[in-house]
Design a protein around this nucleic acid. Sequence first.
DNA 1: TTCATTTTTTATCATTTGTTAAATTTTTTC
DNA 2: GAAAAAATTTAACAAATGATAAAAAATGAA
Lengths: 186, 186
Amino acid sequence: MDISKILDLIYQLPEQSKLELQNNVSEIAFPKGHILLKANKIESNIYFIKKGLVRAFVERDNEVTFWFGKEGETIISMKSYVEDEPGYENIELLEDCELYELKTKNLRKLFNEDVHIANWGRKFAEKELIKTEERLISRQFKNASERYLELMKDHPELIKRVQLGHIASYLGITQVSLSRIRAELK
Amino acid sequence: MDISKILDLIYQLPEQSKLELQNNVSEIAFPKGHILLKANKIESNIYFIKKGLVRAFVERDNEVTFWFGKEGETIISMKSYVEDEPGYENIELLEDCELYELKTKNLRKLFNEDVHIANWGRKFAEKELIKTEERLISRQFKNASERYLELMKDHPELIKRVQLGHIASYLGITQVSLSRIRAELK
DNA sequence: TTCATTTTTTATCATTTGTTAAATTTTTTC
DNA sequence: GAAAAAATTTAACAAATGATAAAAAATGAA
């Protein structure tokens, strides 16, 4: 998915502002398994996924996967981006990826210079917020089996592309529980 | 908490922009028990809490409380605000409240006219996003008892001001479970 | 205060999910 | 293609949480 399309998905910018943003973007590729972002470090870039699939996870006793990103989505260490503090998330590439890279520093400059880009940034955060809030609510009143069915309905491709251990973690259950749930659905 | 302080908490605006925002704000009060926002309706205002306490909940078999707002916080139907679509949340006043009201229509106009206000709106969404993401992650690897202790640590005043049924719902467990957890902590 | 109502706790049993270990299947590597 | 490694499933039992009902405590209204 090309950068112009990705930027439009978030918010339709006037041509001039869009070019400003695109001029600050460079392309970069990494292989499956690469750790793009490490926890407890300030990340100075954000990335848009041209091609591939990644996961965000935090490390506890085990790894807790809390987000998947695929073509068209944006990779951000929220803490770094928003508060300039080390983030809590690691980002691992689950497939070979082609990414667009944008320096946070340059983006912040554009936020202060261009009202359209500031509103683009606002829309981005707002849309992410709605997605996160809906997931939180879903967690609050659905059991594991219902959450799995919901994921199958909303993101069937994820279940094909991601190994079940990560899916189970994302759903907030153990892999063994997910396996049991799948067996019961047959 | 006065409106100037509340706006500053989100993002420090230049004086001129701040006055622009403040000029669009009016004061309003409602008694405990009042339903300020109803689900499935487009809400045309956002509110800042000057004084009091509210909760956001969705209706399922039971009510699921997913947010508490107190002095200095912002009441928004995210779906209405972001996508101009009916929201999923109800907002109930848990105490008598004094609120600042701001018409979404006017705010949108300011977002397009004033780069500082656009960035204020961006910061607001970004900060809410981090809080929501942290709660989601906490849900993913902490059990009910740990989540209760976390809430006691981070927001002890909530436990004093809110009845336990709502707290239990917010934590994603039944009131009976929360009561049991409290008994085990003694 | 006193009574009625609401909230919280306690108890019991059912269900869901976790833990551990082993078996099976799939994927990767040589 | 065979061996090794990784991922998934299955099984048995443990622990956490849910559901229901009843008792106790707290709150609110007359």
